[in-house]
């Protein structure tokens, strides 16, 4: 029984034997993307979960050329790797970065903006697990409203994080980047297709993939995929692309699933009141008004 997606990617494993937590969404995103890009991918990963679990000499878990960058320097090192290889006469390779949400939306946003501005020929993949997980679940610029983290505790006075996620997808698009996309590992074939598409486009490509962290989200390790699907089905995340100045929605749920059901499955949202959930639902509806108005289907 042929699996079209499985047939379309490399049978080789390029990210193997790593020490990521069981059920780690980020490691699946990295694994899947490298199986699309193949052995000529050169990966750059900043200090963070994926480098911490994959690069401890002598346990080196990438079978393709891979290098750790400084936390702020994913995009700038990607630029250097791409320019250096090109200057050395290499062709037919892909420089790809894998940074988490903090490494992308906070400390790395300046370098990312610079790379997009220069239109460097690189793919930048943000695996978004919605907090600084490697350091023990602290709030990042991509932590959603209401989430409990170790620096946004949920108490009587404050119910977790008080700010919504930064909109990195549209920030990248605002640079008039050749290609940007959102994805979720809950819809893996869609993510894989987007990585493939990105690899065929000249210039800077940005893919923002939701990659749940069982440890930080307070879910069982086997729930990673379902929850990554449910965040899309409930309308709290969406699958879209930006290309040639145009936003496209790839997947429109006929009817959103219950936001409250999505939230209550996760330890980080258990404390939310009905009022908090209404804030989240309202902001979702507002976002979808914008999407319906501005995105092509």
């Amino acid at each position: 029984m042929a699996n079209k997606t499985a047939e379309s990617i490399s049978r080789e494993e390029f990210f193997y034997g790593h020490k990521a937590c069981a059920g780690c969404g980020g490691s699946l995103a990295v694994r899947a993307a490298l199986k699309v890009l193949g052995p000529r991918a050169v990966s750059v990963l900043p200090a963070g979960c994926m480098s911490a679990v994959g690069f401890n000499f002598p346990q080196l878990c990438f079978s393709n050329n891979s290098i750790i960058s400084t936390f702020a320097g994913t995009a700038s090192m990607l630029t250097g790797v791409e320019a250096g290889l090109r200057a050395k006469g290499y062709k037919d390779f892909t420089a790809v970065g894998f940074a988490g949400d903090g490494g992308t939306a906070d400390i790395g946003i300046q370098a990312l903006s610079g790379a997009i501005d220069r239109n460097d020929n690189v793919i930048y993949i943000c695996y978004d697990n919605e907090a600084y997980m490697n350091t023990g679940i602290q709030k990042s610029g991509l932590t959603p409203f209401g989430a409990k983290t170790t620096t946004t505790p949920a108490g009587h006075n404050i119910h977790g994080n008080i700010r919504p996620k930064k909109n990195m997808f549209e920030i990248a698009a605002a640079h008039d980047i050749p290609y940007a996309a959102t994805a979720s590992i809950g819809y893996l074939p869609d993510f894989i297709e987007k990585v493939r598409k990105a690899s065929r486009i000249q210039g800077t490509k940005y893919i923002h993939v939701i990659a749940p962290c069982p440890t930080g989200w307070g879910i069982a390790p086997d729930q990673t995929i379902e929850i990554a699907k449910e965040v899309v089905d409930s309308g709290l995340w969406y699958l879209a692309e930006y290309q040639d100045g145009q936003f496209t929605l790839n997947h429109k749920p006929k009817e959103f699933t219950d936001v409250s059901a999505y939230l209550k499955k996760q330890g980080r949202f258990k404390h939310l009141t009905d009022e908090d959930i209404k804030v989240i639902t309202d902001s979702r509806d507002k976002k979808w008004e914008f999407i319906n108005k501005n995105f092509q289907l």
Binding site: A6, E13, C21, A22, L28, P221, D222, I225, E226
Partner: peptide, 30 residues
């Protein structure tokens, strides 16, 4: 496809698990 650790391969049409590296997350069963 969905194994975060890439420990499953399909051999002669059947899934095979590399137990050296399987962490037992249970995603495959789900």
């Amino acid at each position: 496809l969905y194994c975060p650790d890439g420990v499953i391969s399909v051999c002669d049409g059947k899934a095979v698990i590399d137990y050296d590296f399987c962490k037992g997350c249970g995603i495959c069963a789900k």
